[in-house]
Nucleic acid binder design. Structure first.
Length: 335
DNA sequence: GCGCAGGTATTGA
DNA sequence: TCAATACCTGCG
């Protein structure tokens, strides 16, 4: 299956966006499990050239016969020359959604070219697209884990969470894990003390490994557990995309461990609210350098400025500014 | 050995 | 509203 759209897959995968860790590399493909029509499917994508994405999929060994029909139907729909962007949940549509293939990059580049400050970004980021979450809850957990943390570290934490509490799935290409549901994460042990109290000395070898803190989450572990509880009992993950940006922002920011930066990441990468302008120390330095003569402006003001100035392109501008700064050497200069 | 890492929660003017 | 501070922990 081929998806016809300009994209730099490697750049998009490895740009460190906080929606999700990069997918696993197998050969020349990026692979991960995506739940489509309630069936976990292993998606394998690789870059054919700048304007084509090649897409293969596998069913779990235990599920071989369950959704073949569904998949077969999807294939015919997606194999046409257009990527149907209806509401139909198909493999092609889902991959197009995740890699934001229907976003008009050329139009965006025209927009960037109109602003002297933004114009150089295209040169460093051509083909970079939003890498949207395959699952909003995974995006929330990843985003909470990413706060005041290094990419290397939160990425490992998320992988451990999947191995410990996700569903183990055997595919022809190997073993993968799904991401656990909120109801599962809300009831795991928070730390080794809680675990020890519950299990006692009977399992000394395995003891103190089946808890959130052992995933290297530090003080974020209790936030994550409480957030999972709220998302199980009080907040419906699927109501959020129906809300206005403002309402969604307030709703998400009420979760423990979620401040303004993380809330915007969840809205942008997890739900595709393009008007979000996630602002952290780096974006603050970059924007301040480009637009405010390096003046010290609060992160919150930077966020307001970005949303006001860039409108529906805010999310993309944030993404491009960050990577432009990183690749051009501007970031080192601002340090 | 020590400080940082793409913030958040808490506290006190 | 806003500034100041503590906070887990693995990697350089």
């Amino acid at each position: 299956m081929e998806l016809n759209s300009q994209i730099n897959l490697k750049l998009t995968q490895e740009s460190g966006q906080t929606s999700q860790a990069p997918w696993q590399v197998k050969g020349n493909s990026y692979c991960d499990v995506v739940e489509i029509a309630k069936t976990p499917i292993l998606i394998k994508v690789h870059q054919k050239d700048i304007s084509y994405l090649n897409l293969e999929y596998e069913l779990p060994r235990s599920n071989q016969n369950i959704s073949i029909d569904e998949v077969a139907i999807e294939r015919e729909i997606a194999i046409g020359n257009e990527i149907a962007i209806g509401n139909e949940v198909t493999i092609g549509n889902e991959v197009a959604r995740i890699f934001d293939l229907n976003f008009d990059l050329d139009k965006f580049y025209t927009y960037l070219a109109e602003d002297d400050k933004l114009e150089p970004a295209t040169r460093f980021c051509r083909g970079l697209r939003l890498f949207l979450a395959k699952d909003p809850f995974e995006c929330m957990v990843s985003s909470i884990a990413s706060a005041n943390n290094s990419i290397a570290r939160w990425t490992k934490s998320v992988a451990k969470i999947k191995e410990k509490w996700g569903e183990s799935l055997e595919f022809p290409s190997g073993r993968f894990y799904s991401f656990p549901r909120p109801s599962v994460l809300m009831s795991v042990y928070e730390d080794e003390f809680e675990e020890y109290e519950a299990i006692g000395r009977t399992m000394e070898i395995e003891c103190c490994r089946q808890n959130l803190k052992s995933c290297g989450l530090g003080y974020r572990a209790p936030y994550m557990k409480k957030a999972s509880e709220l998302l199980t009992l009080e907040i419906d993950l699927f109501e959020i995309p129906k809300m206005s940006y403002d309402e969604a922002f307030e709703t998400v920011k009420n979760l423990p461990g979620v401040g303004p930066k993380v809330a915007d990441c969840i809205l942008l990468y997890g739900y595709g609210f393009r008007e979000a302008f996630p602002s952290d120390v780096w974006i603050k330095r970059i924007v301040s350098h480009l637009y405010f003569d390096d003046k010290d402006i609060s992160v919150d003001k930077i966020r307001e400025f970005g949303m006001e100035k860039f409108g529906d392109y805010a999310g993309y501008v944030q993404l491009y500014l960050f990577h432009y700064a990183r690749k051009s050497g501007l970031m080192n200069k601002l340090k």
